[in-house]
Simulated assay, not measured.
Amino acid sequence: MTRIDNLGDLNAFRAIWKAIDELSQKNDLQHAAIGRGGITVYGGGVIRIENGGLSVTGYAEITGQLRGDGTLIWTGPWAFTGEGEITGDLDLTGNLEVLDDGRIVAGNVRIEDGKIHIGRMTLDPSDHGGSVKFPNGAEVFTDGDTIQLVKGNSVVQVSDQYARLQNGGNVVQLDGDGVRVSPAAVGIAAAGESVATLGINSAGRLRRIPAAGA
């Protein structure tokens, strides 16, 4: 520190002015460091970063709100343990996994225990070879060979070999040999009703009967 014992000492005054000039041009905060005492911003003040960035190699702790209207880009892993809400559109280009036997709910769609529930309709890949169950009791399912539609006492069954329509014990089947019907599935001709061109053989096959003289 400069001390003036002689007010006529110009060199002392020059030294003071030089020190003041150097102090006014210094920018010690450009390479400043903050220790354990930390830094506190109060009274509505803000920390503004212009043409630069914020680098955190430790951790950032926020007990208030983190607000922004720009783009959030995150490349590392992350974890949210509290409740959250997304009100905008969300595009997911990777896989989504819910751990600890959790549920995924979106509107009236619920994914739980390997099943997809849409309202009162259920898609269950573990039932038979996969099934869709409807609120009215109807069901579509597949096994190793067929796909079937079931409602109460009626069944529609399709495979690569045949298509079958069944109600109770009455069956109508279409396959490579033609049409097969169970006897009860065909009504008895009424008196005077002509059935001369249609009949069923002993195997239950529906056959055309040539007209007389054909």
Rank of each mutant, 00 (worst) to 15 (best):
G114P: 06
R208D: 09
D100M: 04
A15H: 06
Q173M: 05
V179S: 10
G168Y: 01
I34R: 14
L23T: 11
T2W: 02
A33R: 11
S182A: 10
R110C: 04
Q25N: 12
G199F: 01
V41Q: 07
N11P: 03
A184Y: 07
L198S: 11
F141P: 01
W17Q: 11
P125T: 01
A203D: 15
G168K: 11
I73G: 13
G68C: 07
Q30H: 08
M121V: 12
T122H: 03
N153H: 07
K151G: 04
A214N: 09
L123Y: 03
V140M: 15
Y162T: 04
L29E: 12
G192H: 08
E139D: 07
T197E: 12
I188D: 06
G114V: 10
N11S: 15
T93R: 06
K26H: 10
K151E: 11
L206W: 11
G102C: 13
P135I: 08
G94D: 00
N108R: 00
H31Y: 00
T87S: 14
K18N: 11
R3W: 10
V171Y: 02
V172F: 07
A185Q: 06
P210I: 06
W74H: 08
V150T: 12
Q148A: 13
I104N: 09
T63A: 05
D113Y: 10
A212Q: 05
D113Q: 11
N167W: 03
T81G: 14
V41C: 13
L149Y: 04
V171C: 11
G45W: 15
G204P: 01
R207N: 11
H117C: 08
G199W: 06
V132Q: 04
D143P: 09
D160M: 13
L54A: 14
G137A: 08
D143H: 08
S202V: 10
I62K: 02
E83C: 02
D9A: 12
G176Q: 15
N153Y: 07
D9Y: 14
V150I: 13
L54G: 07
G199H: 06
I39M: 15
F141G: 02
L92C: 05
L92W: 07
G144C: 05
I188M: 14
I104V: 14
